[in-house]
Design a protein around this nucleic acid. Structure first.
Lengths: 173, 173
DNA sequence: GCTAAATCTCTTAGAGACTAAGATATATAT
DNA sequence: ATATATATCTTAGTCTCTAAGAGATTTAGC
C-alpha cells in the first residue's frame, strides 16, 4: 500500500470515527435534556450561556438559528425553572440580557459528571504531550466547524441556480 | 506550577475546547437539516442509517430515544422525501427494515462537503503518526461517551429518592 | 396444535415547541 | 420632529413528540 493510500485510508477512518462520536455526543445531550426535564433547545441555550456568559435574547436567536419568538419561549421556560434571569440593559432598554442563575444551573452541570468521568478515564492513558496535541486539534477543529457552518449557511442565501455544484471529492482509499 | 497542576489545567482546557467544538457540531447538523428541509430527528436517523446500514424501525427508536410512534412519523416523512425505503422482513413479518435510497440520500451527503473540506484542511497539518493518535482518541472517546450515556440513563432508572435531586420538572417521557 | 404472552409497528389524541407575521417599545438618523 | 431601524414579545397556526393502546405476527408453555 502506497504512502498516500495509507493516509487516505487513515483520513477515512478518522472521519467515520469522529462522525460516530459526534453522533453519540448528540445523544448524550438529548439524555441530559430528558433527565433535566427541559427541551433540547433550552439545554442548548444553557450551553451557549455557559460558553459565552451573559448574552442578549437576540444573540441567542442568532447563534441557535431559532426565531426571536422561539427564544422568548425558551427564556420563559428557563426563567420559570429558575435557571436563568432576564436583565434589562439600562443603557439600551430594548435589550434583554439573559444570565444564568449559578446555584440552580449547577444541577444541570451535575448531569455532565458521568461524561467528565468517562473522558477523564480516557485522558488518563495519554501523556501531557499527547494531550497538548489533542487540545491543538480540538481548537483547530472548532475553527474548522465554524468555517464549515458559515460556508453552509452561505449556500442557504445563494439562489439554488447560482449555487456551485456540490460534488463529493473522490474517495481515496 | 507542579506537574499535576499543569496537567489539571490542560484537562480543563481540553474539556472546554471539546465542549465548544461539539456544540458547534450540533449547530452544523441543525443547519444541514434546515438546508435539506427535514426535521432534526429525521437527519439524525439518516445519520444512523449511514453508520449502521439497514436497521429496523424499533432499532431506530432504541438508538434515538424516540418512541416507536415518533419513528413511524420520521420514516413516513423520509420515505415521502424518497430518502429511505421500508422493507418488510420476510422471515419475521412484524419487522420493518429501513434502508436508505442511495441516489437520493447522496443529496444530503453533499451538505457535509463543507465540513469534510474544512476538516481535510485541518488534518493536512498533521503527520500520519499524529493522525493515528487522533484516531485512537476518537475511538476511545466514542466508547467513553457511550459509557457516559449508559451511566446517565442509569440515573433515570434510579428511584428519585435514591439519587441527588436533579429533576427540575416532571419529565414528559 | 392451541392458547397466552411477548414482540414489533402503527394509530390516535392531545401537548409542547416552532415559524411567520406583526405589535410594542426604544433608539438613531435626517 | 419625523421616519427608519432595532430588539423583544405576542399570536395563530403547523409540526413533531409522547402516551396509550390496537393490530399483526411470533414464541413459549402445556
Amino acid at each position: 500500500m502506497s504512502r498516500t493510500k495509507a493516509r487516505a485510508a487513515l483520513l477515512g477512518e478518522l472521519e467515520e470515527a469522529m462522525r460516530r462520536s459526534s453522533a453519540q455526543g448528540v445523544l448524550y445531550g438529548q439524555t441530559v435534556a430528558n433527565v433535566a426535564g427541559i427541551a433540547n433547545s433550552d439545554l442548548e441555550c444553557m450551553d451557549i450561556l455557559y460558553l459565552e456568559g451573559r448574552v442578549t435574547a437576540g444573540r441567542l436567536a442568532e447563534v441557535t438559528g431559532l426565531t426571536t419568538g422561539a427564544i422568548t419561549g425558551v427564556v420563559d421556560r428557563l426563567e420559570k425553572a429558575g435557571l436563568v434571569r432576564r436583565e434589562r440593559d439600562e443603557a439600551d432598554r430594548r435589550k434583554v440580557y439573559i444570565a444564568v442563575v449559578p446555584e440552580t444551573a449547577m444541577k444541570i452541570g451535575q448531569l455532565y459528571v458521568p461524561m467528565q468521568q468517562a473522558m477523564e478515564k480516557v485522558f488518563d492513558a495519554y501523556s501531557d504531550e499527547e494531550l497538548r496535541l489533542l487540545l491543538r486539534f480540538a481548537n483547530e477543529g472548532y475553527k474548522g466547524v465554524v468555517a464549515a457552518t458559515t460556508a453552509l449557511k452561505g449556500l442557504l442565501d445563494t439562489p439554488p441556480e447560482k449555487r456551485p455544484d456540490l460534488k463529493l471529492k473522490k474517495r481515496r482509499g
